[in-house]
Design a protein around this nucleic acid. Structure first.
Lengths: 258, 258
DNA sequence: GAGCTTGGGTGCGATATCGCACAGAAGTTG
DNA sequence: CAACTTCTGTGCGATATCGCACCCAAGCTC
């Protein structure tokens, strides 16, 4: 393996979308933190002290029930951020954040977030847009949990994770996926077997390779597509270093602002 | 029946929490609109033109799947508002809003919302806090859909509805509840029968009376409590006309702001 | 009050998922 | 390489929910 280059803040889509002057103001305050696999970034009830912008890591938010069972309600990667409660007004959330794919994130301390918030500037607008996309993802998780099979949910999960990586290999055991989807490990095994038999994925001992992404999408339920489409509307993919000077003018459908 | 008094904006908790000067600025622009039972307030893909503050109505947000099946992802009453996408940055949401309990709402047109937003004032802070509570409710719906029985979900649903009313009678058929929970009507019938046999509720032809609210809470899953607790933290109950001058200083746990 | 519509109750076979038990295969550690 | 741990595969009975069919009762309409 070659030595890995240090991640750049621009790898995070939200940071990359900021205007140069905003970047110049904020980037000196960003702190790069490594996020090792399976590490716990946030535990229910604690106070958040930073907003995290992942560059090459994936983090899952899950709710842990009183009996210990869990369900993932959200996946965050370089398209978004962690710690919305810092600017939404709360102190924390009743959920847990766990690193699902190792990597890094840049973090911004609470006072800086507050300062940017009070400027009422571009970062705030971007963060709010992202938050709306986040709500869509959570809502669709609710729908999916109600109506779709484990097979379909596994496809959705793999796609959500794939979208946040630059390669096609996922490091997660079936047991872990079971915890995320809130189903039994054996259920995941059955679903994964079917996918492997169809040549869509291959896997062994916690390493999953996605071989046929298109097939994965057709096998998934509509939930994946709904979230993706909505997210692209709210936060159109920004080629890195492209600068958006006015978030309200992001080329969605052309409509009056606010 | 006596003639009903016209609802006052202060019946909505968010409007009631605003400082006098903010109220003085906004209230002249509020328009009272009746919300008849089962009327459609918003359809997926349309553009929202107002933010609605319910006073005595309950509105459900549901996602409609391609095959026509549905699931409620959110319940909104006088504790909140409809139309978060107006200030979050989107044009709309992939969901439908339907009046679950008849009543009224005050609405504020888009330009006024924009103006208030740009002031970066109290209304914005309140709206964001509410949005975080909303996310908790959606997330817990996802958890509940995964892990809890129809019996428990029915209890949760009745409680969510009760909390937004000043009386203990709900006007909704079992078929409607089935649509909201995303389950069969027959499943609701079975669950409702159990509750009726235990003397917790009584019902007939679309009119449900809650007889033992405490029992309902014990029969419900933890999801109801989690959302309630979190909402109270973010938006402590405000006796009407009590004025909060600084949202960031709402007496949550005493902690640094932002 | 005859007929219709709506809301609710019941039965039954099909299915998805669960809980549990156990086995084998792939790595890891000594 | 022996022992152990981790990850995955399999079988089986229990359970919750589904889809469907049908029935009855309450209320509405003419």
């Amino acid at each position: 393996m070659s030595t890995k280059p240090k991640p750049h803040p621009q790898q995070n889509h939200l940071l990359a979308a900021l205007a140069p002057d905003v970047q110049a103001r904020l980037f000196p305050h960003l702190e790069l933190v490594p996020l090792p696999l399976r590490s716990l970034m946030y535990e229910s009830g604690r106070t958040m002290r930073h907003v995290y912008f992942p560059t090459d890591a994936i983090v899952s938010l899950q709710y842990i029930m009183e009996n210990g069972a869990s369900t993932a309600i959200l996946v965050v990667g370089n398209e978004g951020l962690l710690g919305i409660s810092l600017f939404m007004g709360g102190q924390g959330t009743p959920s847990r954040s766990i690193v699902q794919s190792a990597g890094h994130a840049y973090r911004l301390p609470r006072p800086m977030v507050k300062e940017e918030f009070n400027r009422h500037g571009q970062l705030l607008l971007l963060m709010l847009r992202y938050t709306q996309a986040l709500i869509t993802q959570v809502a669709q998780t609710a729908v999916c949990n109600r109506h779709h099979s484990i097979d379909q949910q596994l496809c959705r999960w793999l796609l959500l994770s794939m979208d946040r990586l630059s390669h096609n290999q996922l490091t997660m055991t079936q047991e872990f996926i079971g915890n995320m989807l809130g189903v039994r490990r054996e259920g995941v095994t059955q679903a994964a077997l079917k996918l492997q038999q169809q040549g869509v994925i291959s896997y062994s001992r916690g390493l999953i390779k996605v071989l046929d992404r298109d097939k994965l999408e057709t096998l998934s339920c509509e939930c994946y597509g709904v979230v993706k489409k909505e997210t692209e509307l709210l936060l159109p993919y920004l080629p890195q270093r492209q600068v958006i000077t006015n978030v309200a003018a992001i080329p969605v459908v052309k409509l009056p602002t606010v």
